[in-house]
Amino acid sequence: MPKSDPFEQHTERYEDWFDTHEDAYQSEVEALERLVPQPGFGVEIGVGSARFAAPLEMRVGLDPAEEMLARARERGIDVVEGVAESLPFRDETFDTALIVTTICFVDDIPQTLAEARRILRPDGSLVIGYIDKNSPVGQIYQEKKSENPFYREAVFVSTDELVQALESAGFSEFEFVQTIYHWPGEIDEPEPIQEGYGEGSFVGIKATT
């Protein structure tokens, strides 16, 4: 079952995080912009309130939470209710598929990645942004997940685990960026963005076939 109840019930708390942690949020957006400079016809899977879809110029957003879709619609996104494991789109529809801070909430990562590949055009790209479970922030999130309504049921993954899952889904070309080197509440200016992974807690992967 999709882990959407907390996002339906705590929509304002979700939105407040981005306003309170503006510099961390902007660092994540700018990191992902390096991977999606020209998204073409793009979809965000797990769009939430479109905090990433809107600045990254995705046209379509999918999410199981109606309250989130209402916010995404207000930000100019064409919204569709659904889940990542069974995308209601035809094969080879999109140039870019985006999954940001969502991979830890899906029920089936292999099926999610297979579906993302199915809806991408032959020269399309899948871009995933997430908190690496082996990073400092990832470790704190896991330690305190019982205290957070959003992360209580989340299953975090490492970059190596995600790359392995992507390869199994048929992706073979990868590009990495990273940012967020401090606890988000301690960040008071944009964080550096670097290639690769292993230092920053927020990692972006661009995967192509």
Rank of each mutant, 00 (worst) to 15 (best):
M1D: 12
E8M: 06
Q9M: 12
T11I: 11
E12M: 08
F18N: 05
T20P: 02
D23F: 15
S27F: 04
S27E: 07
E28N: 05
V29L: 12
E30D: 15
L32K: 00
L35T: 11
V36R: 00
P37W: 06
I45N: 01
G46D: 07
V47D: 01
S49T: 15
A53E: 11
L62P: 04
L62S: 02
P64E: 02
E66P: 00
A72Y: 09
E74F: 05
S86P: 07
F89W: 11
F89G: 08
F89V: 08
E92W: 07
T96M: 03
T101V: 14
F105Q: 12
F105Y: 14
V106W: 03
T112A: 08
T112C: 07
E115Q: 07
D123N: 13
G124F: 11
G124E: 06
S125L: 05
I128E: 05
I128Q: 03
Y130F: 15
Y130V: 04
K133E: 12
Q139E: 15
Q139M: 13
Q139V: 13
E147V: 05
P149G: 03
Y151H: 12
R152M: 06
V155R: 13
V155K: 13
T159C: 08
G170Q: 08
G170Y: 09
F171E: 01
F171A: 03
E175G: 05
F176C: 06
F176V: 04
T179P: 01
P184W: 11
E186F: 06
D188F: 13
E189T: 14
I193Y: 08
Y197Q: 05
G198W: 02
V203Q: 02
V203C: 04
I205K: 00
